[in-house]
Each structure stands twice: as structure tokens, then as C-alpha cells.
Design a protein around this nucleic acid. Structure first.
Length: 850
RNA sequence: GGGCGUGUAGCUCAGUUGGUCAGAGCACCUCGUUUACACCGAGGGGGUCGCCCGUUCGAGUCGGGCCGCGCCCACCA
């Protein structure tokens, strides 16, 4: 035990020892009942870890450490999410390359030392992936350093990446099996599309943003009649894509138009006037134009009313060339339509909108001025421009068919906190289509299949040629399907690989399988799956949590974990979410250096499950104080030799142990239900009371009285200290290990969790014989004595001539049991009990000596 | 528009089944250092528990309605 204990250097010291001793290594020989498996969230490596990560990963680590002390063999791997757009963009910029799946793999490829000045170098997908792995390696090392510094009890030999070979193999195998069972399919259909990234995106990746726009009132002529129809729209640039006008079936105002043909302004295309329940008569004129496709509602109308497709928008977000005068593009005046559309073709949506408004003004089809409005527009969460809906061929995984089963799985799952289940159910219930998993990107897991090319070189999508499972992972852009030669790639009668990659969530949704190495190490997988807990934040319930349940349901017909531990966010002092884009991020390493890991963990662990928590360095200072207190209290308690063969006999000692037993029972119950915050709060609260009252009360007895009385306190101190050190171990792993090492063998983190029954046994009967009351009354009186001294501006050790205690007979009898300690702790000469109904204390201080 | 959460001292938050529940820590003020701890100890001031109704002998705690904040969702023309 050091002379002057300090927190300095504990993190380096113990991280190193834990690593060397393999303190957190997973024992794969353990039987399934003894395994506690954690589906760790793999952080995105293209970026930096922030305070929010420190917050939620601490929560998981507290649970992991608790379970380990409960005797469980904890499977606690770490993953790196290096799959997806963020990494792709970083690699492009860093190396000056771009991925081109048509480029053949170059096994001798070396990354350019400097990014190319102008034109990025086109490289094959396998080469691009290699660059991604190279670049993310550095980040992963930095992340690991931070996690070790924070004291995460991860088994670092169980680390995976989401772009690695294993993840690719598992993703591709799962896809092939889904395909064989008809749970995956491809379809040419309207698809949510990001025009900047030029890729399909999923419903789950959308977010609403408020954007200014304008409402335009547009006049449609009615064919063969003098009538006209007025339609309000925020997207006049899509008039050429209009396929119908709709009214609500009960809307009397438009009754005479129903069944007639309207003529689109400027282009003179005939479109029917129809009805649909979803039309809101309150909006605009009550007439709405259906375009293919302006928004998701258009898709519903198009599908349900069997309308034709007239696409004007290309994948790059510009207006396409359109064959006016051919079937589907008829006009009452083809030449005029062609000329006017020529003004729009090739322009972006915004450019086309400005131009068409001018054209409508010229033709007199714009009624009044456009009215500025602010409306919510759907964006890809990583995108800069609104998503469009574009018809394209995509791969889907069936979800709509399984909604009921998924909701049932959600109810099987234990949610912490329980109300988070509602978010899951709302999401499943609100799904509007199957999950589109194909992305028109390059860096990701490719679809393991090829298509034959017919005699004219066209792709025969209907006859995909699947990779064999033994081949996986394959990259169809460089690998060749069975029965073909590489030279046949792209040739008529030859083949071509599926050019797309899977959505990043299509891989992340398999983290239990990847971490458990399904297919590669089935013995391991069997012992960890289904897992015990999925820890994650609430914002990705609709993505990560949902898709993981879906995949597990489809592949194994089982829930992937028993518990979901949902953490909140870290908010800045303005109660906004901490995020890089807002520039309010504090770097975690800096925090750890300033306050220490235990202090930062303390702050994190005080944040309740599911609840957003304010970033508060003040709380970290409190945590540091607690750690220092544990050092000093331990030093005090261990200062003398342990007694031999004695028992705890003194009433105050026994009463303290009884209270401690209750605290242990409470903390244990809280941790069992994943409420680490309350476990810590209650433990801490009692620990401060223990230091301020119990330790002060027993000090005198411990130093000067009979050997037997000293033995009782000495033993009680050791019993309680052992419990405290273990209770704090999951929260403050460094200082707990330090103080444990002063007097115990082995790591506190492998020590058994304190046993409430054992402690209660040592204090049996303390409640019945008045010992617990003795402790309470004694502490009450001590508080009053201190108060008197403080108000008299005297030192705490100032002698007291006489203390009169008025209280009930029962409490006075109890006081008798602890009076000797009280006299010593308060430097009291005489204690005078007076029976009374209410508790009151009079303190007569000894006169001040010069 | 719907769902979920939340609103308690200047700040961060406890207040499990309605009756010492008006609390803790920080901050602030006062006092105190020979023996675990100045990265300390003792004490003090400070709140009509968002607002309004209701149930009850009694409500921070239950019910209803408003208001504020946050998140998620929505078929946002």
C-alpha cells in the first residue's frame, strides 16, 4: 500500500497488466449457460469517436464487468464498421482514386503516394477495398487506444470489421440463402434515389428537412369541353411527367370533370381525371396532379390506379430526353411540346423549375403569383439534395410479409427501458415496402452473382448465375462464374457481374453472426448465439435493431438476443445532440486525460438507460472525488493487521453490515435489470454516509480500546471494504483494481460479486435487537453535535462538556449501545438521556482554552 | 396530425406501490487542518415539485385538460 495513494498512472499500469494477463479473454470452453454474449455496436471508423460513444460504451462495459463478476464468461468483442459511404469518400480523397467495377483486379497495385492532381485513378473494386482496409487500420488503432484507456473490458482478440472477408462471406451466404427461399428478390420498380450519390436508398435512411418552396397554381384545359381544372403544385417541373389528376370521391366541386381528359399545360398531353380516397379536399383546389414520380404518394396512386409511367427525371437529377410523339408521349401539339420541353431537358430540378415557371407565365397557365411555403422534404440522411423516386432494378428482402412475426419478436425481447419497444413497433407498423438492399455504389459487399448476356449483349436479369457457397466471398466484377472464361466478360453470349453492392445495414444486421463467426467457427457461434444483449442508442432502432431482428428471424427463426439495452444521447449545454456537424464536440481523449477514466465513466454511468444526458464535466469532478475517497478509505481500513478468528460483535459494526447487505441486494437487483445508474447512485450514497459517519464513529474504538472491540471494527472494516471495492469495480475499474491489489490476490474484475446474504448473515438479528436503531440514533446525535460546533465556530475536535439527548425510551435504549463510540467521535464528556416524545439535542461545549 | 419521453432548488438529477417526499451533489456563504483523505471535513441559506381541474381525509406521486422541450413517425400535392 502506497504512503500517499494517488490516481496518477493507474490507467497505464492496469491496462498493461490486464492486457498481459488476458484478464478479459473469452474462454470458449465455457458452456452456453455460463456465457454472457454482447452484440457490441461496431463504431464507424471513418470519423472520430466522440463523447456520445464514451457514454454508451461505458454503459455496456459496466454490464459486462458485472456479469463477469457474477461468474459469467463474457463474450465481448469489438467491431469496426468500415463498410459504407463515409469510408468510400475518405479513400477517394485520401488516395485520389475512384472505384470502377469494370476495371480488372491488379494484384500488384500500389496506392499512389500522392493523390493525383486532377483526374482520380480508376481502380478495381478489390483494390479499392484493400485501400479502405489500409486507411481504416490507422483509425482502428486509435479507437482501440481510446477504448483501452477508457477501460472497456473487451476481448481484443475477437475483433471484426464489416468489410472484412468474414463479413463479406456471411453477408453473401445469407443473401444466397434468402434468395433460394424466395425471401430476396429483384424488381424493377420506383425506388428512393439520391441524385448526388446516384444510388438507391432505403426508407430507414431518410430524414425530413424543412425547406422553403413555392406553391404554384396551374391551369389544365379540359379536352373537348370549355371547362378548366386548377391544380396546386410545389413541383411544376414535373408537369411533363403528369399521368392523372385526382379528386376525392366525395368532393362535389370536381364532379363534372370526372372521367374527362385534362390537357397538361405547355405539353398538351391527355391525362384522365380520376378519384382516390387519399386526396385531401382541404388542400389547394382539391385537385392534385399525379406525376411519375413526385413523392411517395404518387407511387401509391400510380400503383393502385394502374397509371402509366412517364419518367422525366434521370438518375443524375436532371431532366431526361423524351421522345415526344411516340406512344406514351402523345400531345395535341407535338412540335410545341418538344420545343418547350427542350427548354427544360438537361437542367437540374431547380433549374427546370425556374424555367418552367417562366414558360407557364408566358403561356398564361400560371394563375396568380407562386406562394412561398415551407414544407418538409425527404432527404437521404447523408445527402445534400432531396431524394427523388426513380424507376430502377433493385434487390429487396421481404419484410412486409413478416411484420406480424417481427412485432411478436419485439415483444419477446426485454427492452431496457421498456418503453423503447413502442418505437420498434411503430416503425414496423409504418413500413411501406420491402427492404431495398442494393446500392449503386462500389465500396461494400457485392451481390454474389452474374447475369448471362444474350446474343445482342443485353443483360438477362431473369437468369442470375449464383456463386457457390464454397466460393464466397466473391466479387463478380473480377471473379468469373462457373463455365465462363474471363474473356467473355461483357461480350455478347458472355456474362456480366451484378454491379451493385449491399446496403451497409445489410451487413451490419448480421453482427451477431459475424462476431460469432457463423460458418467459420460454428462451435463458437453455437456458444454465443442467440446473444444476451444488444446495446445501442435509440436513434438506430429503426435501422440496426430492426434489421438485425429481421435477418435473425429469416435465417434462424429466433430472436438474436434476449435483451436490448438502449442508451440515450449526450446533449450539449443547450440540450442539442452532440455531433461533429454542430461543432460542439469535445474529444474524448482530452477528457480522459483531464479527468481520468474512472471519473469520465462515473459521469457516463450516472446517465439513465434510454435517457439523454447533458454533457457535464462537473459530474466528472465528482467522480474523481469518489475515486480518491475510495483510495483513502481503503488505506484507512487496511491500516492495521487483520484479526484472527474474531467475529463482528459490536452493535454499530453489525448494524453497518446490515445496511450494507441491503445496499448490495439493491445494487444487484438494479444491475440485473440493466439499471446501472441507480446501482451506482445507491452504492455511492451509502459509501459517502459510511465515510462521513461510520468511519468517524469507529475511529476511536479502533485505536484505543480492548483488543476484542478493536477486532470487531477491524473485521467489519475489511468486510465492508471488500464489498465496496467490488461494488464499485464495474464503474471505476482502475481505482477498484488498485485498492483491491493492496490486500487481495487476483483481479477484482474476476472476483465474485458481493453476496448480500453473506453480509446479512454476519449481522443477523441486527434489526430486531435495536442495533440498527443504535446506528441511526448515534448518527443523528453526532450530526447535532457537529452542527453545534460548526455554529460556535469551533473545531470538530473541540471538547463537549455535556450533551442532553431527548428522545423516546426505545431510541434512548438503542443509543446506549453506541454511546461509547459517540463519546469518542464527538469528544463528549457526558451524555445525558432524557425521555421525551420528540428528538432534540442540547450541546454544551467546553469553554475555549487559550 | 399521431406516438413515445420529459418538465422537482442557479446547474445536473434522486424521489419503486399516494401519508416525515420537499431531497442529493455541484455552485454559493460560514467555519475548521497533528494521526484515511485539502483531489479534505463540518454546517448553512435556497424550491407555490410547468399550469389548471378532478379523485382522496391527504397528491411531486393517480386521472383529465392545457403549455414548454426532445425524439420518432405520418399519404408534407
Amino acid at each position: 500500500m502506497p504512503e500517499r495513494p494517488t490516481l496518477e498512472g493507474l490507467e497505464e499500469k492496469w491496462s498493461e497488466i490486464w492486457d498481459r494477463q488476458g484478464a478479459y479473454r473469452f474462454d470458449r470452453e465455457a458452456s452456453r449457460e455460463r456465457v454472457y454474449a454482447i452484440d457490441t455496436p461496431p463504431p464507424t471508423v471513418s470519423g472520430s469517436l466522440h463523447v456520445g460513444h464514451v457514454f454508451s460504451y461505458t454503459h455496456t462495459d459496466v454490464i459486462a464487468r458485472y456479469q463477469r463478476m457474477r461468474g459469467m464468461e463474457v463474450f465481448y468483442p469489438m467491431g469496426w464498421d468500415d463498410n459504407g459511404l463515409p469510408t468510400e469518400r475518405r479513400v477517394q480523397n485520401h488516395f485520389g482514386v475512384r472505384c470502377d467495377p469494370l476495371v480488372p483486379y491488379d494484384p500488384d497495385f500500389k496506392a499512389p503516394a500522392e493523390p493525383a492532381e486532377h483526374e482520380p485513378v480508376a481502380v478495381s473494386r478489390p483494390n479499392f477495398v484493400a485501400l479502405c482496409l489500409e486507411l481504416t487500420k490507422t483509425d482502428e488503432q486509435a479507437f482501440e487506444q481510446l477504448w483501452r484507456r477508457l477501460g472497456l473490458s473487451v476481448d481484443w482478440s475477437m475483433t471484426y470489421t464489416t468489410i472484412g472477408e468474414l463479413a463479406q462471406r456471411i453477408s453473401q451466404r445469407s443473401f444466397l440463402r434468402l434468395l433460394s427461399r424466395g425471401e430476396a428478390y429483384q424488381l424493377e420498380a420506383p425506388t428512393l434515389w439520391d441524385v448526388d450519390f446516384q444510388t438507391a436508398v432505403a426508407q430507414a435512411e431518410l430524414e425530413d428537412r424543412e425547406r422553403p418552396g413555392a406553391m404554384h397554381r396551374v391551369r389544365f384545359a379540359i379536352a373537348d369541353a370549355p371547362a378548366q381544372a386548377l391544380v396546386d403544385t410545389t413541383r411544376p417541373e414535373l408537369i411533363a411527367a403528369c399521368v392523372a389528376l385526382l379528386a376525392h370521391p366525395d368532393d362535389e366541386r370536381h364532379r363534372e370533370l370526372l372521367g374527362k381528359q385534362a390537357l397538361t399545360p405547355l405539353f398538351g398531353t391527355r391525362v384522365p381525371v380520376l378519384t382516390h380516397q387519399l386526396v385531401d379536399p382541404e388542400k389547394g383546389t382539391g385537385l392534385v396532379m399525379v406525376c411519375t414520380f413526385g413523392d411517395l404518394t404518387d407511387v401509391v396512386w400510380w400503383r393502385e390506379l394502374g397509371l402509366p409511367v412517364r419518367s422525366v427525371l434521370g438518375p443524375d437529377g436532371r431532366l431526361l430526353e423524351v421522345p415526344w410523339g411516340t406512344p406514351g408521349w402523345e400531345s395535341v401539339d407535338v412540335e410545341t411540346a418538344r420545343a418547350r420541353y427542350g427548354e427544360l431537358q438537361g437542367r437540374t430540378v431547380n433549374q427546370a423549375r425556374r424555367r418552367i415557371v417562366e414558360l407557364l407565365e408566358e403561356s398564361g397557365d400560371l394563375v396568380g403569383e407562386p406562394q412561398p411555403v415551407t414544407h418538409a422534404v425527404k432527404f437521404f440522411e447523408k445527402g445534400e439534395r432531396p431524394v427523388e423516386i426513380i424507376t430502377s432494378r433493385q434487390w429487396f428482402i421481404r419484410t412486409m410479409d413478416h411484420r406480424q412475426a417481427l412485432i411478436a419478436r419485439g415483444r419477446e425481447l426485454s427492452w431496457h427501458p421498456p418503453y423503447m419497444r413502442a418505437r420498434f413497433e411503430d416503425w414496423v407498423q409504418g413500413l411501406s415496402g420491402d427492404w431495398n438492399i442494393s446500392r449503386q455504389r462500389f465500396f461494400g459487399v457485392p451481390f454474389p452473382l452474374w447475369y448471362p448476356l444474350d446474343a445482342s449483349g443485353d443483360v438477362v436479369h431473369e437468369e442470375p448465375m449464383l456463386a457457390r457457397e464454397e466460393q464466397l466471398p466473391v466479387d463478380p466484377s473480377t471473379d468469373v462464374p462457373d463455365g465462363y472464361e474471363p474473356a467473355q466478360r461483357g461480350r455478347p453470349g458472355g456474362f456480366s457481374g451484378d454491379p451493385d453492392v449491399m446496403d451497409t445495414w445489410a451487413t451490419s444486421s448480421l453482427t451477431p453472426q459475424i462476431a460469432g463467426q457463423a460458418g467459420a467457427d460454428d462451435e463458437l457461434f453455437e456458444s454465443v448465439f442467440p446473444m444476451d444483449v444488444r446495446p445501442q442508442a435509440h436513434d438506430i432502432i429503426r435501422t440496426w435493431l430492426f434489421t438485425t431482428i429481421l435477418r435473425s428471424q429469416l435465417d434462424y427463426n429466433v430472436l438474436p438476443w434476449r435483451n436490448a439495452a438502449i442508451s440515450g444521447w449526450v446533449l450539449d449545454p443547450e440540450r442539442k445532440k452532440m455531433s461533429k456537424s454542430k461543432g460542439n464536440v469535445v474529444t474524448p481523449m482530452h477528457l480522459l486525460e483531464e479527468h481520468g477514466a474512472d471519473a469520465v465513466r462515473y459521469w457516463a454511468a450516472r446517465g439513465r438507460p434510454g435517457t439523454d444526458t447533458a454533457f457535464d464535466p462537473q459530474q466528472m469532478k465528482v467522480g474523481r472525488r469518489l475515486a480518491v475517497k475510495l483510495l483513502n478509505a481503503s488505506k484507512f481500513a487496511l491500516a492495521d493487521l487483520p484479526p484472527e478468528g474474531e467475529t463482528v460483535t459490536h452493535p454499530l459494526d453489525r448494524a453497518m453490515l446490515a445496511r450494507l447487505a441491503a445496499v448490495v441486494a439493491d445494487a444487484t437487483a438494479r444491475l440485473e435489470e440493466y439499471d446501472y445508474a441507480r446501482a451506482l447512485e445507491h452504492t455511492e450514497e451509502f459509501f459517502w454516509w459510511y465515510c462521513d459517519f461510520y468511519l468517524e464513529l469507529v475511529k476511536g474504538r479502533r485505536y484505543d480500546t480492548s483488543p476484542q472491540a478493536a477486532a470487531s471494527v477491524s473485521l467489519a472494516l475489511r468486510l465492508s471494504l471488500s464489498a465496496f471495492q467490488r461494488l464499485f469495480a464495474p464503474f471505476l475499474p482502475f481505482v477498484s483494481e488498485e485498492v483491491w491489489s493492496w490486500w487481495q490476490q487476483g483481479s477484482v474484475h474476476r472476483a465474485p460479486w458481493p453476496d448480500a446474504t453473506e453480509l446479512a448473515g454476519a449481522a443477523a438479528g441486527a434489526d430486531r435487537n435495536g442495533e440498527e436503531m443504535a446506528l441511526a440514533v448515534t448518527a443523528d446525535v453526532l450530526r447535532e453535535v457537529r452542527k453545534a460546533k460548526s455554529q460556535a465556530r469551533r473545531p470538530m475536535r473541540a471538547p463537549v462538556r455535556r450533551v442532553v439527548v431527548r428522545d423516546t425510551a426505545r431510541r434512548l435504549r438503542a443509543l446506549e449501545l453506541g454511546s461509547e463510540d459517540l463519546l469518542a467521535a464527538g469528544a463528549i464528556e457526558l451524555l445525558e438521556p432524557v425521555e421525551d416524545e420528540a428528538f432534540a439535542v442540547e450541546v454544551e461545549l467546553a469553554p475555549e482554552t487559550r
